[in-house]
């Protein structure tokens, strides 16, 4: 540990369905060097535990003074309450802000995460349109992961394997279960693993363009971010379909967290407020979450409560607006 005074940073946390990502952002650095620390953790269905592990790793990773916190992702409310976030923002805005911060000329952001995929259309630095997958998670990271497991290949090697393909096979892209049947069938016919994996990537890219982008105009600069952007095969497939270069930013896997940190910085600088960050007390406190079906009225809301050291912290889910 250095003896110097701690570095002032903004913490961004993205609690997603598959991963929980942490980054520290130093606003005094130029935007390509501003991310001074990052950690990509598996949520494994236990966001509280992931938050605690991330914070522990952060304090072990350097001498920091956190001056602001932003949360995003499907677990943003929970993370916001537990961490004492200054900004709790949806992941679409967060991803757009992060992309614009890297390159002011971005006009298209393709984000494919664990269980959802998004398209963000930006013009003149402002989000003008977006789309998300509707009620089906076909063509997202969870599917790639399952298939990698079934094929016995680590998910991070799928992409390089796909690049080795010469004649990708055609795999149905509408439904992941049918895609799987197709893949098994092609394997049994004796196609090479490279060609099958490349076919999988291209079916996922097609699925994305048909179900999410749905004919929206995709113009450069195109950014591809989210966990799936690690897959070179996917990048190539998207590039082939769209017909223009697709850039994968350096911190593609934590862009949501970067956006949350930038939003926190902007908010605090604008309001002059001091951060609500709980700091190391998260590590020493015990958290308990509790959910139940409320029976006070016939609405039967599903209520979630968060308790810290036996004290009620926050609750949500009630249509009547009560918290406890």
């Amino acid at each position: 540990m250095s003896e110097a005074s701690p570095r002032q940073v903004y913490l961004g946390v993205d609690v997603g369905s598959v991963s929980t990502n942490f980054i520290l952002y130093d606003g005094r650095e130029p935007s390509d060097k501003a991310v001074v620390w990052k950690r990509y953790l598996r949520t494994r269905g236990a966001p509280l535990e992931a938050l605690r592990m991330g914070l522990k790793a952060m304090y072990e990773g350097g001498n920091w003074e956190v001056v602001g916190v932003g949360t995003t992702g499907s677990g943003r409310e929970l993370a916001g309450v537990v961490l004492g976030a200054d900004v709790v923002k949806n992941e679409i805005t967060a991803h757009a802000i992060a992309a614009l911060n890297q390159n002011r000329d971005v006009q298209t952001v393709i984000e494919i995460g664990g269980q959802d995929s998004k398209l963000i259309v930006i013009r003149n630095g402002v989000v003008v349109d977006f789309a998300m997958n509707t009620v089906c998670a076909a063509g997202t990271g969870s599917f790639l992961e399952q298939q990698a497991m079934r094929l016995g290949i680590p998910v991070d090697q799928l992409g390089s394997l796909a690049l080795g393909s010469t004649t990708p096979v055609r795999i149905a892209g509408r439904c992941t279960v049918f895609a799987e049947s197709d893949m098994i069938h092609k394997q049994q016919l004796g196609h090479s693993m490279e060609d099958i994996v490349a076919g999988l990537c291209s079916s996922m890219a097609r699925n994305y363009l048909n179900n999410v982008a749905k004919g929206k105009e995709l113009v450069p600069v195109v950014f591809f971010q989210g966990g799936v952007a690690a897959n070179q095969g996917m990048r190539r497939a998207l590039q082939d379909f769209i017909g223009c270069p697709v850039e994968v930013p350096e911190h593609f896997d934590v862009m949501g967290a970067i956006g949350a940190a930038i939003l926190a910085k902007e908010r605090l600088e604008r309001t002059g407020a001091i951060t609500k960050f709980v700091g190391t007390s998260l590590l020493s406190s015990s958290y308990r979450n509790n959910s139940y079906l409320c029976d006070r009225c016939p609405n039967q809301c599903e209520i979630v409560e968060i308790w810290r050291d036996g004290v009620f912290l926050a609750g949500w889910g009630a249509r009547c607006g009560r918290t406890i």
């Binding site: 923002k89 679409i92 805005t93 989000v127 977006f130 998300m132």
Partner: peptide, 8 residues
Amino acid sequence: TRLEAFVD
């Protein structure tokens, strides 16, 4: 998420 992003 969709509503918040749309309002933004």
